[in-house]
Simulated assay, not measured.
Amino acid sequence: MIRFLFRFVGLWVLAGAFVALVLDGVRSIASSEIVTTPLGVTWLAVSPESLARFQAFIERSLSSTVWSYLVVPVLGAPLFAVLGIAGALLLLIGRRPNAA
């Protein structure tokens, strides 16, 4: 049951990555240059208070160095790449074991 849940959520996350890729592609064609939307910009547009709470949590629990050197680069990565990697990892976690 848990594997099914990982696969199900993984497919939805991959679908979100595909939608983000198509939107970036449309914007790139319209502007005649490559345009990508960073994860941080999308998160800030959707829920700025949760991003601020997440930053405070990371800086309080771990360190401001972790925020600066680990989280900020991920927030600057293209949304389709982050969602694609997360979806692929969820699908790998939820895959069926090999029958030997």
Score class of each variant (00 low, 15 high):
97 P>L: 01
50 S>G: 01
74 V>N: 08
11 L>T: 08
12 W>C: 11
62 L>R: 00
56 A>C: 02
71 V>R: 04
36 T>Y: 12
65 T>S: 06
10 G>L: 07
50 S>L: 09
91 L>A: 01
79 L>W: 03
1 M>C: 09
6 F>A: 13
34 I>N: 04
89 L>A: 13
61 S>K: 03
44 L>M: 14
31 S>W: 08
85 I>V: 15
45 A>Y: 08
2 I>E: 11
61 S>F: 04
71 V>W: 09
11 L>N: 11
87 G>W: 05
4 F>V: 13
1 M>A: 14
83 L>V: 01
18 F>N: 00
70 L>C: 11
51 L>F: 05
83 L>F: 05
91 L>N: 10
65 T>R: 08
52 A>E: 13
23 L>V: 05
6 F>C: 07
42 T>L: 13
16 G>Y: 02
16 G>C: 07
3 R>C: 04
81 A>M: 14
36 T>G: 00
91 L>G: 02
32 S>R: 08
82 V>M: 03
80 F>Y: 11
81 A>V: 15
18 F>G: 14
7 R>A: 12
5 L>Y: 14
100 A>S: 11
3 R>F: 09
19 V>Y: 02
75 L>G: 09
91 L>K: 01
27 R>E: 12
11 L>G: 12
15 A>P: 01
34 I>E: 06
18 F>Y: 06
63 S>Y: 00
32 S>W: 12
54 F>Y: 09
82 V>F: 01
25 G>M: 07
60 R>E: 07
65 T>D: 14
56 A>L: 09
26 V>G: 02
74 V>A: 15
21 L>R: 09
55 Q>D: 11
63 S>P: 00
77 A>M: 13
5 L>D: 07
92 L>T: 05
72 V>G: 04
71 V>K: 04
69 Y>R: 06
45 A>R: 05
100 A>Y: 01
39 L>D: 11
54 F>P: 02
43 W>V: 15
82 V>P: 00
60 R>T: 14
22 V>P: 00
79 L>H: 01
70 L>K: 06
36 T>C: 05
48 P>L: 10
82 V>L: 02
7 R>I: 13
23 L>E: 04
68 S>R: 09
61 S>Q: 05
27 R>K: 14
59 E>C: 14
78 P>D: 13
37 T>G: 00
45 A>D: 15
48 P>R: 03
65 T>C: 01
97 P>D: 03
42 T>V: 10
19 V>L: 14
48 P>W: 12
54 F>M: 10
43 W>D: 08
100 A>E: 04
21 L>P: 04
8 F>R: 14
44 L>H: 13
76 G>K: 15
67 W>T: 06
9 V>W: 13
69 Y>M: 11
22 V>K: 00
30 A>T: 06
37 T>Y: 02
63 S>G: 01
6 F>R: 01
28 S>D: 09
29 I>D: 09
52 A>I: 08
55 Q>L: 05
98 N>C: 00
44 L>E: 15
87 G>I: 06
94 G>T: 03
80 F>H: 12
38 P>F: 10
7 R>C: 12
